[in-house]
Amino acid sequence: MSLTGTPLSPQRRRFLQDSARAAGGCVVAGSLLAWLARDARALPAEALRPPGALPEEAFLSACIRCGLCVRDCPYDTLKLAELGVDAVATGTPYFTARDVPCEMCDDIPCVAACPTGALDPGLDNIDDAKMGVAVLVDQENCLNFLGLRCDVCYRVCPVIDEAITLETAHNDRSGHHAMFIPTVHADRCTGCGMCEKSCVLPEAAIKVLPARLARGSSADHYRKGWEEKEAHGGPLVEGIIDLPDRLPGPGTDNLTTPGGFTPSYDLPGVGQ
């Protein structure tokens, strides 16, 4: 009796067994591969992608790891991640600002070299690049924060006076000097890393971080009253009575502030 074609046929049984075995093997292998793929997304904070790089998840679907961007980089800024050496997805391009920063070439040769669009060809002005955001991470060691005039990060910034400005502040330590605080403006900072590279300290006090680490975000519903008022050209609500501001007095702790409010009565424990 032939069982061919019936549910009991040995061919059918073997086919089902083989398929199940192959599918099982594929699920195991595929899971390992998927685990690697998830792992690959964890880009270390020091590793910066080239200008125009798509957001990391899209980048890993687009970069074929050919190295053409590395070849066309005239300053040898870019390198390809090596297996087991760099924590970046193997073979993808990145740079470390403290080693070799991006020189921000006008013609952006790395983007022009990319065959797949992993580096967005829509980036035609290098000043619009967003490789990261510089952050003055160590205010305790930054020389300018100590009241000195180092200014190196500010001087080397290719977008000087826009991406980094020096904001004056009172130097409480000396009492009569100004401090010139290097201040990064994230909307203009390209993340090229010239400031981090040039910081004179043994370990840079200013570092380029990926935007996800460097930046907070404002809540959508927040409004700055002073901006709204200025845009409106006056108070937003008519007829508001401007009550007098409360002056220092009882219940506050600055009774002895020079030139402050002197109460007409003495409070116990307040040395006069």
């Binding site: 594929c26 292998a29 595929g30 591969l33 998927a34 690697l36 793929a37 998830r38 690959a40 997304r41 998840e57 899209a58 890993l60 679907s61 970069c63 074929i64 790891r65 997805a89 193997t90 073979g91």
Partner: peptide
């Protein structure tokens, strides 16, 4: 087939990882 499925599911060019 597994490589293509993993690429589709993770959005990463999967085989280039290995």
């Amino acid at each position: 087939a597994t490589v293509l499925i993993v690429s589709a599911l993770t959005g990463v060019i999967a085989w280039e990882l290995v």
